[in-house]
Design a protein around this nucleic acid. Structure first.
Lengths: 329, 329
DNA sequence: CTGAAAGCGCTTACAG
DNA sequence: CTGAAAGCGCTTACAG
């Protein structure tokens, strides 16, 4: 492996000068610079990043913490992040918490020890230990998806998205709307989306039968199981529409409904959130909310980059969304 | 940031000893070890990885080069890789070539300069410059999806998968089978899959009308466009079945066929490859091949790990696949 | 415009 | 069982 010393020797200058030429810092005569660059070209020399990082305390690496590696949402966000960061010469160090709260914390510390310049955290829950760890490590962190106190956060407008979806169903004549949510440990998906639904139902004067409410775990299977339970428990007072807080759960629900011979949307309308690829191509196509995840990723990267430049940024950014009306309602 | 020196001072030993205790190398008295570990616990000390890496030439990071960040295939493979690697304490440094051959090469060099211990390359093409670069950097590389000369490769059995699919269609009574492939720059998807199809057609004595053949670019849209062209150009001699070499292109094709009022599979049968999530939930559900991508990722990680331990491994591993028969045929 | 020297935080022969 | 010292490959005041 050729080092800066080799280059210096070959160019007949000190390594100080090579470093300056490479980093465009300080004066280097045009003549010498050309000579150095030529040799760098020829040898294909690349500075050792560990050494550089050890010395400068910066690494050119951004850590990304994901709740799940293999969901469309995560993928899109990472894609957006990468698009912006790659252009600025940053690499992404990826970690997957598998929805484990402890891992979320462990990874923040780990990324710190790896000298990442910043962290983008796709948060799924909010707790004291997490916040505290972030303060401790003292590197720029940007949260996506949850509002983390003291951490610049990019959030989806979960409340209004859910409210809009509910209003839309009501406008279509539905009064009995079922709901499949997730754990309230997840403030955004678990709490805000349900709140939007409940508030709108109340506002329109529609009573909610608690038998219509289910709690899934984000998986397709849980959507399937929850709608089964809901239908079993509400025989005489069935909902005419169903609001699943994620596309995947909506897909599971539709699978069950189709199996049971229900016509969608005639017998029961279904909506989700996420604008997954499948929502578009399934039959019937699914009415859902597009959260522009890739844009979110890009914006997150930009915001983090601004933090790295020590710019002050707002503590909270709200993202836009779009309701996509399709055949399932 | 606390360093090994701080710990040494607090424990009243040299940093040599602290290092030994931390890495379980050489002798350290039980007494001293306990004292050190206690302090490490309390302070939450984590060794600086850049320093460690500079010194040991190992980083605990594996580079992964992807053709696209946001495809189901990539995601599943990465998921498998991560599952194995995380358990061994490795992190993943992710790069996305966006199907750009030059970037593939650039990233290999870049990852080298970042001291990654090894690289897993999801290859989409094979060329001299790429092979040469891999030899140059001289770190363990493992290829998935293409057979790279001189590089241990984990490959899908594209030829037989395509052959099986074709045979299955023939067995169902189809003699006129259309085909949507991709560029031959991609030896696996572009060449082998087409070869499997053509060989089986010939073997069964079924003439191929070249108007039935289209070339897409992996995208859903290209499947849509290609089937449109195929149908336009084969008016009097339409295929009764269509083999798209990826699920996404099959999905695009089906979209067009449904729009045009064709019944699937009655008017025309469609098959793909990939076992995407959508293939299962779309209507009609898609007959396809499952390549067990996550398993591939896991196996790739294991093989790379073995290389890191300087074990000799075979130059080529062939993965298994499974045909999933569904409603589209 | 250029270079000598110190130092980033580790590990590892070597000596005791 | 323990420590002093060298060195990994860089950058950056400092001096000229």
């Amino acid at each position: 492996m050729t080092t800066i010393n080799d280059i210096a020797q070959m160019a007949n200058v000190s390594r100080t000068t090579v470093s300056r030429a490479l980093n465009n810092s300080g004066y280097v005569s045009e003549d010498v610079r050309r000579r150095i660059m030529q040799i760098v070209e020829e040898t294909g020399y690349m500075p050792n990043q560990s050494a550089k990082s050890l010395r400068t305390k910066r690494s050119g690496v951004i850590g990304v913490i994901l709740p799940r590696l293999s969901t469309e949402t995560s993928t899109r966000v990472v894609n957006g992040i990468n698009e912006v960061l790659a252009k600025e010469g940053f690499q992404i160090l990826l970690t997957d918490t598998e929805l484990d709260k402890q891992k979320e914390i462990d990874y923040i510390r780990l990324l710190k020890s790896r000298h990442v310049d910043g962290i983008i955290l796709l948060a799924t829950n909010v707790n004291e230990a997490l916040i505290q760890t972030i303060q401790q490590v003292d590197i720029p962190v940007l949260a996506i998806g949850q509002e983390l106190p003291g951490v610049p956060s990019l959030v989806y407008d979960d409340y209004h998205a859910a409210a809009d979806l509910t209003n839309m169903l009501v406008r279509k004549g539905h009064e009995k709307i079922g709901f499949i949510g997730v754990t309230r440990d997840d403030p955004s998906v678990g709490v805000l989306r349900e709140q939007g639904y409940r508030d709108m139902m109340q506002q329109h004067g529609h009573q909610i039968n608690e038998a219509w409410i289910g709690e899934g775990d984000f998986s397709i299977e849980s959507g399937y199981e929850q709608v089964k339970t809901i239908l079993r428990n509400s025989k005489s007072d069935r909902p005419t529409a169903l609001f699943a807080v994620t596309d995947r759960m909506a897909i599971g629900a539709i699978e069950y409904l189709k199996e049971q011979g229900y016509a969608i949307p005639e017998d029961i309308a279904v909506v989700g959130i996420g604008a997954s690829m499948m929502s578009k191509y399934m039959t019937p196509s699914l009415t859902t909310i597009d959260y522009h995840n890739k844009e979110a990723g890009k914006q997150a990267a930009h915001l983090l980059l601004r933090q790295l430049k020590n710019e002050k940024i707002d503590p909270k950014f709200e993202l836009s969304y779009r309701l996509i009306l399709r055949d399932s309602v």
